[in-house]
């Protein structure tokens, strides 16, 4: 466990020292929230949303989107470590690859959770969130959803990073897989009014359950039209455990001269 913590500390330090990555990853979702939220609220005045306030609706989706980007960038650190030679050193230590993977994923998890919470907290004073269970309980629910969705996405990114040799290929595949999932999760528009085939896709999309839990925690005034926290956490919990375990199963490959 010491080795995992050592590695997690090092990965967190690397993110803190990459100032441009740190600032852009924090600012991008906030700018997205401000400009897209206000633009759509005032430009289109969406009739299906309460008081036409798209910014408040968008908070949950932006938190999930932040987790998606965060897990992608964090897992891309495998490629930096491989290219800098550090991965080779890690593999020559007495620790099992699973311990090393655990350390790296812990860092990715912390980064994802912190970024998601920054978005949630930064947006709270500026949007008319309901916090129907009270602010403290709502934040607790949101935190639980954020932890589970980050666990799942970190596991997914890790599993892909261990199988794809190039960082470009990894980013392409992550974008290809995760953008459609984001679109049909209720992150940017409610899934209620969608055609049946899209609603079916939305219900088999794990991100839908994260968005639903976050909407219920912060935005919604009641449970009507939502999946419900019970189902959300059962689905998210099961997937988080399964995908994270899959992510710990295989270490990215290091090639040898002559191979």
């Amino acid at each position: 466990m010491n080795a995992a913590m050592t590695l997690a500390r090092r990965d967190l330090m690397a993110v803190v020292r990459s100032r441009s990555q740190l600032y852009s990853s924090m600012l991008t979702p906030l700018l997205f929230l401000v400009f897209l939220g206000n633009g759509v609220s005032h430009g289109l005045q969406p009739a299906n949303l309460e008081a036409g306030n798209f910014t408040a609706y968008l908070v949950a989706g932006t938190v999930v989107m932040t987790s998606v980007f965060s897990s992608t960038f964090s897992s891309a650190s495998y490629y930096r470590d491989r290219d800098s030679g550090l991965l080779r050193l890690l593999l020559s230590t007495p620790h099992a690859p699973r311990t090393l993977l655990l350390g790296k994923s812990l860092a990715a998890l912390v980064i994802g959770i912190v970024q998601a919470l920054v978005v949630l907290l930064a947006a709270a004073p500026f949007v008319d969130s309901e916090w129907q269970y009270g602010f403290a309980a709502g934040m607790g629910i949101a935190l639980a959803a954020v932890v589970l969705v980050n666990l799942m996405l970190t596991g997914l990114a890790q599993a892909l990073a261990s199988r794809i040799q190039s960082m470009q290929g990894f980013h392409l595949l992550m974008n290809l897989a995760l953008f459609p999932l984001l679109f049909f999760s209720g992150a940017f528009f409610p899934i209620d009014g969608l055609p049946t085939w899209l609603r079916v896709l939305a219900f088999i999309n794990p991100l839908t359950y994260a968005v639903d839990a976050l909407e219920l925690a912060a935005y919604a005034a009641g449970d009507d039209g939502f999946i419900g926290l019970g189902i959300d956490f059962v689905v998210l919990g099961a997937l988080a455990v399964a995908v994270y375990a899959a992510g710990l199963a295989r270490m990215p490959k290091v090639t040898w001269s002559g191979e």
Binding site: R10, M13, A14, R17, S18, D81, S84, G85, L86, R88, L89, S92, S257
Partner: peptide, 15 residues
Amino acid sequence: RIATVFQENTADPLM
């Protein structure tokens, strides 16, 4: 009980 020095450097340039 073993240490390996590889052909490539392994030091993290951010440290």
